[in-house]
């Protein structure tokens, strides 16, 4: 008889690994977003994805549901992810401000043209 992997997949609890894998996907998507979007806001969205990927890891490592042992981050994980969320909010605000300013000054939000630092 052929065992479908899927059947077994749903009957067992997931572990930290699975969360970390999802985090990895989010993180990679975010990085790629940053690397490929020419729109400054797109880059910003990439950053949000990256932060979320990281957050997911913190939560996973801190969770007792996924792994109950002494090495768990415990509450620290959640606290750190809270800080991350808050800082992300702040960062979004500032970055938006920068983007708007840049837009005002250059009539563009193409990051490829923001290369004035190039010597």
């Amino acid at each position: 008889m052929i065992h479908l992997p899927l059947a077994h997949l749903l009957s067992e609890p997931v572990g930290v690994s699975h969360y970390v894998m999802v985090g990895a996907v989010l993180f990679t998507c975010g990085v790629l977003c940053m690397a490929t979007k020419r729109n400054a806001l797109g880059v910003l969205m990439g950053i949000e994805l990256v932060l979320n990927g990281a957050n997911l890891n913190f939560i996973a490592f801190g969770s007792h549901v996924l792994r109950n042992d002494a090495n768990s981050l415990g509450l620290d994980g959640q606290l750190i992810s809270m800080f991350v969320i808050v800082l992300a909010a702040a960062e979004a605000a500032v970055a938006l401000a920068i983007a708007l300013n840049y837009y005002n000054n250059h009539d563009s939000i193409d990051v490829d043209r923001a290369d004035e630092l190039l010597g």
Binding site: E12, P13, G15, V16, H18, V20, A24, N68
Partner: peptide, 18 residues
């Protein structure tokens, strides 16, 4: 990253009863 995620046996999750 995926390789790292799968690397640690302790991260594979508890059994259902636990």
């Amino acid at each position: 990253l995926l390789q790292a995620a799968m690397a640690v046996p302790a991260w594979q999750g508890m059994d259902r009863a636990a």
